[in-house]
Amino acid sequence: MKVAPRRKSRELALQGVYSWQLSNNDVEQIELMLATTNDMKSVDMSFFQMLLRGAVTRSEELDAQIKPYLGRLPEELDPIEKAILRIATFELVQCMETPYKVIINEAIEVAKSYGAQDSHKFINGVLDKAVKTLRKHERK
């Protein structure tokens, strides 16, 4: 099955944010490594760069925005879950042209592929609560 360019961008951004969380390497270095070791023809490059750089440079702000909905501290999260939540929160706040349902669904699908067995349920629950504040103009 062919993966859509934005999904591939989210998956690569997840790999980059995860790598940054573990290594604390420079985000440009991580981006270059991902770009040179992956087939970037199927990636929306500008979207990938925006997600990766945004989630890394604004990680503390994103953690603060999502913290009330976690039920635990951000530092207690699995690194994959934390990376997915940072990316999805960044998208919810910065990509107003993308409907929140699409962002949540994409985060769930990425979690199903890369996260622990039931992490997609946790991601769904957290984002469903957070969207009520982060996208209150879009919610009924």
Rank of each mutant, 00 (worst) to 15 (best):
M96E: 12
P79A: 03
S46M: 11
Q21V: 05
Q94W: 12
K67H: 15
S59Y: 11
P5K: 05
S23F: 02
R135S: 01
V102M: 10
R10H: 04
I103Q: 13
P5E: 03
M40F: 13
D118Q: 10
Q21L: 15
L52V: 10
M33A: 10
L77H: 03
E97C: 12
A116F: 00
F90E: 01
D26K: 03
L12W: 01
P5T: 04
T98V: 15
M1C: 07
E75G: 05
K132V: 13
V17M: 04
K82T: 00
E91V: 02
L134F: 06
K129Q: 15
R7V: 15
M45G: 14
V102N: 13
G71K: 15
A116M: 01
E11P: 01
R86C: 02
L92N: 02
K2L: 11
Y114W: 11
V43R: 04
S113H: 12
I66G: 00
V126E: 14
E97F: 15
I30W: 02
T57A: 04
Q117G: 00
E28N: 10
L77C: 06
V56E: 07
K121S: 15
E91K: 09
V56W: 03
D128R: 14
M96R: 11
D78R: 03
L70Q: 07
K8E: 12
L127W: 04
V126F: 15
L32S: 14
F90P: 00
K101D: 15
R6L: 12
I84F: 04
V56D: 07
Q117F: 00
Q94K: 12
V110K: 09
S19Y: 05
S42L: 08
K132Y: 07
